Amino acid sequence: MNYTRLITDLKRFGVKTDETVTEALAVIHAARDTRNAQPIEDLRAAYSNGDITSANAADRIISAATLAAGSERVHLAAAAVEDGANTTLRRWLGAREEQIVKALRPAFDAAAAGVQLAGRHFAPDVTATQLIAAGSAAVAANEGLEAALSTLARIRSCRVQVADCAGHPEQDVTWYIEGAHDLEHLDVARRAYTGAGDAFHALAHAGFTLRLNTVQEAVKVSHGARGVSDAREAQERQTRIAEARERNAFWLNPTSA
Rank of each mutant, 00 (worst) to 15 (best):
A180T: 13
E23C: 04
E217W: 11
H75A: 07
G195P: 05
R245L: 15
S48D: 09
R240V: 13
R245M: 15
E72Y: 13
E98A: 07
G207T: 08
V221K: 00
A123P: 00
T87L: 11
E82A: 05
A138C: 04
N253H: 15
A148T: 06
R190L: 06
A95H: 14
A77I: 12
N248V: 11
G14R: 01
L212Y: 13
F208K: 01
Q130L: 15
A45C: 10
H201Y: 09
Q38W: 15
G135P: 02
E23Q: 10
E19Q: 11
A30M: 08
E246M: 13
L210I: 15
R60W: 02
D187E: 14
A85Y: 05
L6H: 08
D18A: 14
P39Y: 09
A45P: 01
T22D: 06
A163K: 02
E143I: 00
T239K: 11
H205S: 01
F208T: 12
H185Q: 15
L43A: 04
A112E: 01
R240N: 13
R237N: 14
L186T: 07
Q99R: 11
G84M: 09
V228M: 09
I62A: 03
A206K: 05
A138V: 03
A80H: 14
T174D: 13
Q235M: 06
V27M: 13
V15S: 00
G144T: 00
T8P: 15
H185R: 07
A107R: 00
Y47W: 06
L76F: 13
L183G: 05
E243N: 10
T239F: 12
G14Y: 07
H29Y: 14
A46I: 06
N56Y: 13
H223F: 13
A206L: 04
G179H: 11
W92D: 09
V81W: 07
L212T: 06
Q216R: 12
R35N: 08
A77D: 03
S54T: 03
G14D: 07
T194A: 10
A85M: 12
H185T: 12
A64K: 05
I40D: 13
S54G: 10
D51P: 06
A202P: 03
G224R: 04
A123Q: 02
A112W: 00
L93G: 12
G144Q: 02
G179N: 07
W175T: 00
G227M: 08
A204E: 00
D59A: 10
V221N: 02
E236Q: 10
T34F: 08
H121G: 10
A218I: 00
T87I: 15
A148P: 04
E23T: 13
A147S: 07
A128G: 10
L67G: 02
F208P: 00
D172A: 12
F200W: 07
T53M: 08
D42N: 05
R154M: 12
P106E: 11
R159K: 08
V115K: 00
D59F: 14
F200V: 06
A113S: 09
A218M: 03
